[in-house]
Amino acid sequence: MKLVIDDACYAYDKIFSQFGEISALPGRSIDKASVQDTDVLIVRSRTKVNQALLEGSKVKFVGSTVAGLDHVDQDYLAKNNITFFSAQGCNSMAVAEFVISAIVNLADELDFDYTQKTLGIIGVGNVGSRLAAKAELMGIKTLLNDPLRQSNENLPHFVGLDTALSADIVTFHTPLTFDGQHPSYQLLNETNFHNISEKTILFNAARGGVIKEKIWEKTQTMVNIIDCWENEPNINQNLQECAYWATPHIAGHSVDAKFMGSFMVYEALCDFSGQTQDESIVNLIAPGILKVKKDNLKDTLNEIYDFKQDTAAITNVDNFEDYRRNYPIRYEWHHFDSTTVLPIV
């Protein structure tokens, strides 16, 4: 088999070499010519997988090692009998840790007790569920909004969107969808932005386009934390300048998340091709026990990984893509032996 793989996919050479000849390219450089004689295409979010890319190619399997889906035309793949697999949930722990780290830092710097705040979580899927579990472990009251889950699972404790938007801290964890009964594109817009006040801490660690940025940049909040932007890497610099953390879509970029994205696609490709899994691959991440000896949660989390360095890295926005592609090593909390108890669930 011939494989074209985004060269930002974690350990692609070690994980996918058993399947055949690999051509590794930057995601934005994967084009129609490069996939013509390809059997397998493995991408991250920077490659638009659609008819324009695949028409006339030999591609029969597409794997996406990230959780987002808006870069893939799934209808086209299905109509053309192209198997598709997406690593849903691979980065959920990393994103939840990103949000909790921001809240803990803000509580210290702005002198508030996060156990006295409400956290509105909009989208309670893989990420939102993990975040809610961590928040509840820390004594933070959560307001959960997810109309799809609420209608399908009859969850009486879930709340309406306006209620969730009225929380002290509001964070979005929806996919980016444009149709269906509950599209998420510009979910926060001119009809409901009045729920956001100058006392709101507002996150977008979901997808660019979930919040209408032209309104957001004119709305006074207490704090903005923005990891996902419209038109990446050409981000809204007005919002960038007013954000507490303005990061280049890296909330989910832990080593663990990137490995799991590749590994989940690897498992699916083994099933597709009828090949046996190499049992050693699951052990690729083995940093040993990492120790942190700090006497408070903020310092502990910042020693594990300080997201402020990500904000500093894109002060010059021209560094956005390069920094994402060459992101520093960041392990998730479960690898650490910590003096301070971490909210690990």
Results as ranks from 00 to 15, higher is better:
residue 105 N to R: 15
residue 105 N to Q: 15
residue 105 N to D: 15
residue 106 L to E: 08
residue 107 A to W: 10
residue 107 A to R: 12
residue 107 A to D: 10
residue 108 D to F: 13
residue 111 D to V: 14
residue 112 F to C: 10
residue 114 Y to A: 09
residue 114 Y to D: 10
residue 114 Y to R: 11
residue 115 T to Y: 09
residue 115 T to F: 09
residue 119 L to H: 11
residue 120 G to A: 09
residue 125 G to A: 03
residue 125 G to I: 02
residue 125 G to D: 08
residue 127 V to R: 09
residue 128 G to P: 05
residue 129 S to G: 08
residue 131 L to S: 06
residue 131 L to E: 10
residue 132 A to V: 03
residue 132 A to I: 02
residue 132 A to N: 12
residue 133 A to G: 04
residue 134 K to Q: 14
residue 134 K to Y: 09
residue 135 A to F: 13
residue 137 L to M: 15
residue 137 L to H: 13
residue 139 G to V: 12
residue 139 G to Y: 12
residue 141 K to S: 11
residue 142 T to S: 10
residue 143 L to N: 12
residue 144 L to W: 10
residue 144 L to H: 11
residue 145 N to P: 02
residue 145 N to M: 03
residue 147 P to S: 08
residue 149 R to K: 15
residue 150 Q to E: 14
residue 150 Q to P: 04
residue 151 S to F: 13
residue 153 E to N: 11
residue 154 N to Q: 13
residue 154 N to T: 06
residue 154 N to R: 11
residue 154 N to M: 07
residue 156 P to I: 00
residue 157 H to G: 00
residue 158 F to S: 01
residue 161 L to P: 00
residue 165 L to V: 01
residue 165 L to S: 00
residue 168 D to F: 07
residue 169 I to R: 01
residue 169 I to V: 04
residue 169 I to L: 03
residue 172 F to I: 15
residue 172 F to T: 12
residue 174 T to G: 05
residue 174 T to R: 12
residue 175 P to M: 09
residue 175 P to S: 05
residue 175 P to W: 12
residue 175 P to K: 09
residue 176 L to D: 06
residue 176 L to I: 07
residue 179 D to P: 04
residue 179 D to K: 15
residue 180 G to T: 06
residue 182 H to F: 15
residue 183 P to G: 01
residue 183 P to R: 04
residue 184 S to A: 03
residue 186 Q to P: 01
residue 186 Q to D: 11
residue 186 Q to S: 09
residue 187 L to E: 04
residue 189 N to L: 10
residue 189 N to C: 08
residue 190 E to M: 08
residue 191 T to I: 07
residue 191 T to Q: 14
residue 191 T to N: 14
residue 192 N to E: 04
residue 193 F to T: 04
residue 193 F to N: 05
residue 194 H to Q: 05
residue 194 H to F: 05
residue 194 H to L: 01
residue 195 N to R: 11
residue 197 S to A: 00
residue 198 E to K: 11
residue 198 E to R: 05
residue 199 K to I: 00
residue 200 T to D: 01
residue 201 I to T: 03
residue 201 I to W: 01
residue 202 L to V: 04
residue 203 F to K: 07
residue 204 N to R: 04
residue 205 A to D: 06
residue 208 G to K: 03
